[in-house]
Design a protein around this nucleic acid. Structure first.
Lengths: 228, 228
DNA sequence: TCAAATTTAATAGTATTACTATCATATATT
DNA sequence: AATATATGATAGTAATACTATTAAATTTGA
């Protein structure tokens, strides 16, 4: 998988960036170091000025790649979802049995990232942490409808739809496949957050994973013959 | 219910405010108008200066009630969860049948607020919208552990725990009652958001409510004798 | 390989935000 | 009426989120 993914470029809506950060060394450093910094200090405290200092570049140069830090967050999270989508499709593509396919899909989508240095300048482990802590902020805005119209969330939407289709293949009569798919994806991020900060509000802990919880939940919800 | 609730004061952690906004006319106007303004312009664009202008008061006077707008958001959302908790306990208290109690609890917790002018200066309908759009921002911060330690989230945590206990009463062997409870509360806000902004990602629409989806999901997940 | 084009860096500047400080005035309490 | 307290007005600071301009470095391509 490593070698394969090295040659794949995740296609991100061109309107999200001013200049493609993949097209230059500076661009890659912006992406690489912004991930480290947002993880360290949180999205609110992160600024382009601080990033410029850190990468020995200039604030104004960063603005030539991204209009503002919100767009940068959209870029990073789109990248993450595109990467997860790729992993999910890759892992489930060859599986024909619907319930095994669904089990695998949930597994890939709700697992934490352990290690994946396929793309040199993107640290997927930290990016996963950023998505848990910051993704909601990218859409809980007054501009969400406009930005959605411009296609800034297509990758995420496609991913939810893929999961929904896999759910339907297991139980075509289940009445809420879209809601269940979106609940799994969003709820998984939430359970990871709770495990870290509000352990009383979750059953997930060192030995129980969000993957186990959601696998169990989804298969209880669906009518199926074999629990995989 | 109206008259009863008029005499109830929702107990909010005193560390959240500098001076209790319930203790003065200015304090009440701060709460009242901040709800309107955050709904109108979103939490990011909302500032104490703008609020001061709107209520014909001064920025510095508002700082005498709340340290910053983050604390004000914590206050408003705590108020909301306290109010919902009250409604939930009130509605389920007299029910002895566990599955009917659970059904009622989910109903109260996942329903949109239609109209409830029990507390004169708090518009619960708008507050519900604010919680949907802004609540996550109150805890997705680098300070969450410290603020949690100081008790800023007690009401919400108590509410999740209450729901979890009601779930256990229906099926004491279900392995993930806390996660299911937190999924219902958080997921419900999310489904409302999706219904409004990403209709393709949910089955909730004009005729299907998040309440129906979650009621169905929870009862599918639990082993029980009667679906109510 | 030299000139032109492009990219990046450095500096400065603006409007706004998120406060803090000070002092005056209005209102309530005793 | 004296005192305390709450509020208002004004000013000020450091940081943020940019934009603009110009200079220097690097790339490109003829």
């Amino acid at each position: 998988m490593d070698r394969l993914m090295q040659s794949i470029k995740i296609g991100i809506n061109e309107k999200i960036y001013v200049k493609d950060p993949e097209s230059s060394d500076l661009g890659k450093r912006i992406v690489e170091q912004s991930i480290l910094m947002i993880d360290e200090m949180g999205f609110e405290s992160f600024t382009f000025r601080k990033l410029g200092d850190r990468i020995n570049s200039n604030e104004s140069s960063i603005y030539r790649y991204f209009e503002n830090k919100h767009k940068l967050l959209l870029y990073l999270t789109s990248w993450y979802w595109g990467w997860l989508e790729y992993k999910m499709v890759f892992a489930t593509n060859s599986i024909s049995e619907p319930h095994i396919k669904l089990k695998k899909a949930i597994e890939v989508l709700t697992q934490t990232v352990k290690e994946d240095i396929s793309f040199s300048h993107v640290n997927e482990i930290l990016l996963n942490k950023i998505v848990i802590n910051e993704y909601s902020k990218s859409y809980l805005t007054k501009e969400v409808d406009q930005e959605n119209k411009e296609g800034y969330f297509v990758i995420y939407k496609r991913l939810v739809n893929r999961l929904q289709e896999i759910i339907i293949a297991v139980d075509k009569d289940y009445p809420y496949p879209s809601s269940l798919a979106s609940t799994v994806l969003e709820g998984s991020l939430h359970q990871y957050f709770l495990r870290e900060h509000f352990p009383k509000l979750t059953d997930c802990n060192a030995s129980v994973t969000p993957t186990q919880y959601f696998t169990d939940l989804v298969f209880r919800a669906l009518n199926h013959n074999d629990n995989g």
